[in-house]
């Protein structure tokens, strides 16, 4: 594949980087990334991956755009209230970059559809807002050995970690069990500063691009915690747990479970 003149201009600031070059940009153009959620994190992740030229971006979300989303969900806008978030995101990303094909899925991710949805993608990004989904995505990625870039935000704090199944830790090595429903407040209950979704989403997009390029270090065996009020980034080491229920030596979880059971969603 040769670059068109438009592509040479669009990606010139990538191509001149020693770590990217024409070869790296072609890897980006051929990459397929699946994003869970078209909300606070999915919007900036998808936005930067689209700008970078990631050829195929899959996105799943069952929600429609609401006014309360627009304080942080930057792929949507006031004219798209009531529109499915994945349709809104597709329109935004494809308008930014016609090299990108956005595959939007209007559904909830579940144990019944996740394996089929992510199996043809290179990398998965979790931008979900709840624990059942977070554990479901982790377990599915471990089972399919898909790299997973997981992000979370609440109030003024964000977290990012990169899970490379077989090589490093997984989400269950970090937090063995889901916290009981109600213990950790949601953004609806506790609020979130909109701009920190951009910080965390951009960190996730950067992790994805480094994975595609095979350059630099990623947050393997590491949890990055961002405290916006204190302007502090902290790296916490997370060793792979050989007793982990899903990625350990003798895993007890060998098939996907009903993660919502006993977990009351608001």
């Amino acid at each position: 594949m040769e670059f068109t003149d438009d592509q040479l201009q669009r990606y010139s600031r990538h191509i001149i980087l020693p770590e990217v070059g024409g070869k790296g940009q072609k890897k980006i153009l051929n990459a397929k990334v699946f994003i869970i959620g078209a909300g606070g994190l999915g919007c900036p992740v998808g936005y930067y991956l689209a700008a970078a030229g990631v050829g195929t971006i899959g996105m799943i979300d069952n929600d429609t755009v609401e006014l309360s989303n627009l304080q942080r969900q930057i792929a949507h806008n006031t004219k798209r209230l009531g529109v499915h978030k994945v349709d809104s995101a597709k329109e935004t990303f494809e308008a930014l970059n016609p090299d990108v094909n956005v595959v939007g899925i209007k559904d909830r991710i579940s144990k019944d559809n996740i394996l089929d949805l992510i199996k043809d993608y290179d990398i998965v990004v979790d931008g979900s807002d709840n624990f059942p989904t977070r554990y479901l995505v982790n377990d599915a990625c471990v089972m399919l050995k898909k790299p997973l870039v997981s992000g979370a935000i609440l109030k003024f704090e964000g977290q990012v970690t990169t899970i490379l199944p077989g090589e490093g830790h997984c989400y269950r090595c970090l937090f063995e069990e889901m916290p009981p429903a109600g213990l950790v407040p949601s953004c609806q209950e506790a609020g979130v500063l909109g701009a920190i979704t951009g910080v965390v989403g951009a960190l996730q997009a950067t992790e994805v691009l480094k994975l595609i390029l095979g350059k630099g270090d990623v947050l393997k065996n590491t949890l990055l915690i961002y405290d916006a009020l204190k302007v502090n980034f902290r790296r916490v080491k997370v060793p792979k747990n050989n007793d982990c229920a899903v990625c350990g030596l003798n895993p007890s979880i060998t098939e996907l479970q009903d993660y919502d059971a006993g977990y009351c969603r608001i």
């Binding site: 670059f3 040479l8 010139s12 600031r13 191509i15 001149i16 070059g21 024409g22 070869k23």
Partner: peptide, 13 residues
């Protein structure tokens, strides 16, 4: 610039 270098870099690759 920067297309002079973009083209040169692609050629050297």
């Amino acid at each position: 610039c920067p297309y002079t270098f973009v083209k040169s870099k692609l050629a050297i690759e």
